[in-house]
Simulated assay, not measured.
Amino acid sequence: MPDLSIVAWAALAVGALFVGLSKAALPGANTLAIAIFATVLPAKASTGALLLLLICGDVLALLIHRRHARWRALIPLIPAVLVGVVAGSVFLAVASDAWTKRLIGAILLVVIGITLWRRRRPAKTESRPGGRAMGAAYGSLGGFTTMVANAGGPVMTMYFLAMRFPMREFLGTAAWFFAAVNIAKLPFSIGLGIIRPQTLLMDAVLVPAVLLGAWAGWVLLKRMDQRVFEIVVTVLTVIGAVYLLV
Rank of each mutant, 00 (worst) to 15 (best):
V94T: 11
W117L: 13
T47A: 15
T199N: 02
R168H: 15
A93N: 14
A61R: 06
V235W: 09
P166S: 13
V246C: 05
V232G: 13
L192F: 04
A11K: 05
L52Y: 07
T146E: 08
P2A: 13
M147Y: 05
A13Q: 03
A216M: 15
I112P: 02
A38Y: 07
R168C: 07
A69K: 08
G139Q: 07
P187W: 11
V110Q: 04
E169N: 10
G240E: 11
G217W: 00
I183R: 05
D225F: 08
I112R: 00
T199A: 00
G28V: 09
T199K: 00
I64H: 04
L201D: 11
D203E: 14
I64R: 13
I64A: 12
A137Q: 02
W215C: 09
M147V: 01
N30T: 12
V235I: 15
L82S: 15
R196H: 14
E169I: 10
G57I: 00
Y243H: 05
R164Q: 15
T47D: 03
P129G: 08
A73K: 07
L161F: 12
I78F: 14
A149G: 12
T31N: 09
V40N: 04
K124S: 14
L200K: 00
L54V: 11
L103C: 11
T173R: 07
V235M: 12
G240Q: 10
Q226V: 15
V232T: 14
S127L: 06
I183Y: 13
K124M: 11
